[in-house]
Amino acid sequence: MKRPWYNFIYVRSPIAKILLGGAALLLTLALFGFTFIIEEPRMEAQTNSWTGRSIEKGAEIFANNCTSCHGVDGKGLPGVAPALHSHYFFTQRLTDLGYAGSLHDYVAGTVAAGRPSKAISQWAQIMPTWGVNYGGPLRNDQVQDVTAFVMNWEQDALQQTAEEDPWQPFQDAKTTDISGTMALPPSAPADGEARAPQDLFTVMGCQGCHNLEQDQTADNRGAIAPNLGNLDTEAGNMVAGQDALTYVINSITHPNDFIVEGYAAGIMPQNFPDRMSAEEIANLAQWLLDQAAAN
């Protein structure tokens, strides 16, 4: 019979076959051995990797949901929400609260279940319930991701000096005195130069409660405080005898003078005149009206 050109691939000698099989078997065993040797470091790298990925996911959730109150760097916003990226938070907070579990559990629990009440604390907004078990939007694994992200500040926070610590004492809880704590939120800068209004809107925590993108209408009301999207058209009609600019300035300096129907008095901080100069407040009010008009 004519032999095909690929005849050479046929192995006929039984010894050659046994040698081939034996070589393949040895290769397999060697590969098993190799896998076995690197198994310990591989498992360690995988463990770190999944922790890392969890932090990445938590960072994304934090950036999209938490920064408006807790600040982009987690250092809190005065009068809106406390700092998490804080030496005090990582060292003293649990002791002062008398919480028995770990800080990790405390953070996870607070994220999932929220804070029960704001009755006697100074924070303008209560911590919402985020966990799905408490009616919030986040699945349990997402709560764990956010917690992993918050806990990842530890290394950085522990290096803060007392002056750098952004922690503000809670009014409703015993707080260990740490000197340098911001007992009062930052006031006007010493050099007297006015700060930019868009920065003030963030630093003073306005954006935690007021939404500048959306209009305040009957069927689209801000949850805690009125939306400011149509401030330019509405502000002049609120209080008789006040034009738009006067009304906005007065609302910042004396928030309780006039409360929009449906909202509670005392939520908006009343110490803005101490924290901003008159010039800054006027600039801020004008900027708010300009922004609303540009919408």
């Binding site: 099989g21 393949a24 078997l25 397999t28 896998t35």
Partner: peptide, 20 residues
């Protein structure tokens, strides 16, 4: 039998190599 055994061992070795 020998052909099949050697073939399967060889194929397994390639799979393990690929996975490694």
């Amino acid at each position: 039998l020998m052909d099949e055994t050697v073939f399967i061992i060889g194929f397994s070795a390639i799979m393990v190599l690929a996975v490694a």
